[in-house]
Every structure is written in C-alpha cells, then in structure tokens.
Design a protein around this nucleic acid. Structure first.
Lengths: 146, 146
DNA sequence: CTGACTGCAAATAGTTTGCATGACG
DNA sequence: CGTCATGCAAACTATTTGCAGTCAG
C-alpha cells in the first residue's frame, strides 16, 4: 500500500525532477516514520543523515513531493499547523493517536448515504470530504492506565 | 440552533468576562456571517462598526469566545490556516462551499459502525472525529454552468 | 555543460506578549 | 475604584523569496 523509496524515486525522475541527496534524505525520513511530522521535525531528522541540509530545502522538497502526490497534509483537531506524512495511493483517511502521534491510514469509509441526505437537504453538489479519527493507540492506553 | 447575540452575551457575563464594545463587535461579525472568516477578515469587518478596534483585540476576543465554546475552528482542505465561525451547541460538522465559502452545519453523522470496525482492527480507543464535506452550493453551481 | 537545486540571508505573514492606559461593572 | 481589557509596539514562529554558487544528468 505504501510507496517504496524506489517507487518514489522513479516517480520523481519520471516527472522531470532531479534526485538530490537532500530530497532523498527528506523522502527517507517521511517514509520511515509512522507519525505526522512538522517541517521542522523532518529537518531535524534529515540532518542526522545529511548534516548540511537547510530548512529551506526541506520546505522546497516537501512542496515537490506534495505536487507529486507522494505526501499529504494532516489536519489535527488542536492547533492548525500543517503536518505531513507519507501517503498511500488514492483516497484515504487517518486515525491519529493523541498520545504518541502514530497515524494509521484507512480507506473504507462509507459516507454515501450521508452524502445523499446532505445533497437533498441543501442542494450542494458534494465533491469531497475530510475525515479523521482521534483516539489512543494500544500502547498509549496502557500507559494511561498505569 | 444558533446562539443569539443575547445568549452569547449572557454566557460571557455568566463566566465572569466583561462585555466590551470590541467583543460585541467581534461577536456580531461572526454571528452575522455564514462564511468562515480569518481573524484578519473579522478585524476588517469589525472595524466598519468600531473603527478603533485593534487586530490584537480581535485575536484575544476570539480566544475568549473559543474558550466559552461560542465559536469553533475550521479545517479546510486547502491551506491550513485556522478559520472561525459561530457554533451551534454540541457535536457537529461542516459542509463548505468551495465557491463562496458558505458553511452549513449538520450533526447527523453516523460513524459508529466504522468506528467499531476501526477499533477492532487497530486496538485504538477512539475518542473523537473530524468530518467535513466540500462541494458547491446551489448558487455557485449555477454560476459554474453559466 | 547548463539549467535545476541548494543554502544563506533577508523578507513576509500570522500570531503572541509586555506594558501603560482606559473603562466595565 | 479595582480589575480586567485594550492598543500599541515589539517579539516570535512559520514560511517564502532573491540570489549567487553548485551539482545532477
């Protein structure tokens, strides 16, 4: 379901972008994390493998990766900063642990009956939706009750 | 379903906050708009009724109103800035027109079966969710096809 | 080679804070 | 009248842009 590093690299090349060590570093950080990361967090981690990378480059890499559909933004309930994570292909949603930040993707949402009802009631032509669940993962539940 | 201005004022007082002309202005702007507004937009509109208000005051008023549960944040799909609008009581969701920004609230979402499935599959204890629909309102559909 | 990419520094945008003054209750 | 609230300016954080040098292809 997830993009492999190789796959990502080939998509990058195929669309005429260059593969630089910096982009590879950003790619790896995102691909190897289950959490949603801020640009700053990605920068910090990328620096461990590639100390000379600049924060600006991280921003620019994220922009490119976003354009290619390899990563996507997160919308957490609390503050509204944009978080990012790797992206399986196509339509999907997130289940986010409020304890550790782990993110699980899922795709099987059935909102069609709700959508129909809303369309009838409002006359809106519905084109998309955003659905995210918040909760505690198994680990954090254990910690909670300890 | 929506809070009246009177109701809002009484809640404000009841919780020990003062009713100032600035807060009243912010309250009115939000209460009288069907769109989601940025702090800056609220500031601009409030200024028409109360020219001396400062942007900082708008931020602080929004903080208070948020604390009281009279307004809530919006999460649009596109950029991640926090938008705000008046709030009916309790749990609800938004249907947002991508054309004009009109927002319609609704509360009748049934996600319990999906929630159960996710809980079983992942072990997460689900505590909440964020659901928003995007589309075109009747008016904007008309404009689109013109 | 050469145009795309990087890194620095500086600019910009959005939001928060410190503090003296003002006004709600 | 005593606080709480306001408004200004300045601080801060997050992100974007300009530009000269660098490197992937």
């Amino acid at each position: 379901m997830r993009f492999t590093e190789q796959k990502m690299i080939s998509i990058l090349r195929h669309r005429g972008y260059r593969l630089t060590p910096q982009r590879r570093a950003v790619l790896r950080v995102i691909a190897s994390s289950h959490d949603h990361l801020t640009p700053a967090a990605i920068y910090e981690r990328a620096r461990q493998k590639y100390p000379d990378i600049g924060l600006v480059t991280v921003y620019r890499a994220l922009e490119v990766l976003g354009k290619l559909g390899l990563i996507c933004e997160m919308h957490t309930g609390g503050d509204c900063r944009s978080y990012l994570m790797r992206r399986p292909s196509g339509h999907h949603h997130h289940l986010i642990c409020s304890g550790c930040g782990e993110v699980i993707d899922f795709a099987d949402c059935d909102l069609s009956s709700l959508e129909q009802r809303l369309t009838q009631k409002t006359g809106f032509k519905i084109e998309g939706h955003l659905l995210e669940f918040f909760g505690r993962c198994r680990n954090c539940q254990r910690v909670d009750s300890a």
